[in-house]
Nucleic acid binder design. Structure first.
Length: 393
DNA sequence: GTCCAACCCATTC
DNA sequence: GTCAGACCAATTCGG
DNA sequence: CCGAATTGGTCTGACGAATGGGTTGGAC
């Protein structure tokens, strides 16, 4: 249920619905945490509301984790230094783990077979026949719910490949061919249920121990590399290892934390002319920025594409290059759309920014000629690759 | 009637 | 994925 | 001491990149 009205943003989502139902059927919001918990381990709004209406709070309390029914995934928060994370988690020993650039899988294993759920709890079992086999062979538990990151790999070197490669596996047709062309590996990072026992209320340390006892380490399967420490410097070092191994960064976990389905926990990912386009950008602007931009650009508006601009996209309004703004992005990807560096890395491919965002800084001290050049972007792209290659050796 | 490119929409991150 | 804004609860500040 | 102001946490919906698949409409 959604509505957007002019300048006002309104939203009615599932949680609001749960609130309303708690009020309607119980007369108060008191049962809300129980209802929320039930919803998060059995995310079917119709089912929850019906149970509440027919059986009341008792029925809600009787809802259990069930293999075959997806659980809303626990999510991660973001901080930008190891020190801040350690402080936030209470200055104690934590588990720092590689954060891989793949797709999150919630794996349900039972007698009848294995089911795979995506992050949004879609059934994607048919996409990964190879994963089903890996789970059948290498998970030493008849019934279990596990979470893993599935990553595309280079079969010869074992090296991890970018997310883009994995995306070829998300298809309805030609699954068998894609499976051969884009082989994958599994990095397990959580265990929510095993042999009919619900582990979601166990501290992470225990879940991880059980995970390690259940997942067999092979070329294609393993518990995700983890380090236990309370020292920010060790985490920084581990972070560098992770990046060097082609990961996005780290996820740092509270060893005492339970699995809070559907909630946000803690994590961390550290980072870091012609005028060909390299990205569109629509994130990072405050309302104030958006109000002021038309005024700043008014004098540079152009009815047609300015001759010194190279773009495959057609915007609503063109501007002659004038204003320089500062943007950051998580990395540079090969692009079928943006012409920056076209053909320099790969035939018919340019380069684009991944997760571009405005930093809030308008660089009045710079002219378009002073902005980052294509050469520099190509160099940045090559630097990214080197880091990955170094590990593969 | 058949085929294919262009478009839009879904999902992942 | 990132991010800004809205909203609510808890905490701190100022009269 | 109490009400006002600030802060922190959570939720929601804007927006970015990519790929695959369904639909549509024009060329033949």
């Amino acid at each position: 249920m959604r509505t957007v009205t002019g300048e006002l943003r309104l939203g009615v989502a599932d949680y609001t619905m749960l609130d309303a139902c708690a009020l309607a059927f119980l007369g108060s919001k008191e049962g809300r945490p129980l209802i929320e918990r039930a919803y998060n381990i059995h995310p079917d709004l119709g089912f929850i509301v019906e149970t509440l209406a027919v059986e009341g709070l008792e029925g809600i309390e009787a809802i259990r984790v069930e293999v075959g029914v997806p659980i809303r995934p626990m999510l991660a928060e973001r901080l930008n230094s190891a020190k801040a994370i350690i402080a936030k988690l209470g200055n104690k020993v934590v588990a720092a783990e590689y954060k891989l650039d793949g797709e999150r899988l919630q794996i349900h294993k039972r007698k009848e077979g294995v089911t795979l759920f995506s992050r949004r709890l879609e059934v994607i079992t048919h996409n990964y026949p190879d994963v089903l086999e890996l789970v059948a062979k290498n998970v030493a538990s008849r019934e279990a719910i596990l979470e893993a990151e599935v990553v595309a790999i280079n079969e010869d070197t074992g090296e991890y490949l970018p997310f883009q490669e994995l995306m070829h596996r998300r298809r309805k047709y030609g699954v068998a061919e894609a499976m051969k062309q884009y082989p994958v590996a599994l990095n397990f990072f959580d265990l929510l249920s095993a042999d009919r026992k619900d582990y979601t209320n166990f501290p992470y340390g225990k879940r991880r121990a059980k995970l390690e006892s259940v997942v067999k380490e092979t070329e294609r399967t393993r518990p995700v590399p983890a380090l236990r420490t309370a020292d920010p410097e060790e985490i920084e070092k581990f972070m560098e290892d992770a990046i060097a191994n082609g990961c996005e960064g780290l996820v740092v976990k509270d060893l005492d934390g339970v699995y809070r389905a559907g909630a946000r926990e803690f994590s961390w990912v550290k980072q870091k002319a012609n005028f060909p386009t390299v990205s569109k950008i629509g994130t990072g602007f405050t309302d104030e920025d958006l109000q002021k931009l038309p005024r700043l650009l008014k004098n540079y508006e152009s009815r047609v594409k300015p001759p010194n601009v190279e773009s495959n996209l057609v915007p609503d309004v063109w501007f002659r290059p004038h204003l320089v703004i500062e943007t950051i992005a998580s990395e540079i990807t090969l692009s079928p759309i943006h012409p920056a560096g076209m053909g320099r890395i790969r035939k018919e491919s340019g380069l684009a920014l991944r997760f571009p965002k405005f930093t809030g800084k308008i660089r009045n001290d710079k002219k378009p000629e002073d902005a980052t050049t294509v050469d520099e972007i190509v160099e940045m792209y090559n630097l990214q690759l080197k880091k990955v290659e170094r590990v593969a050796q």
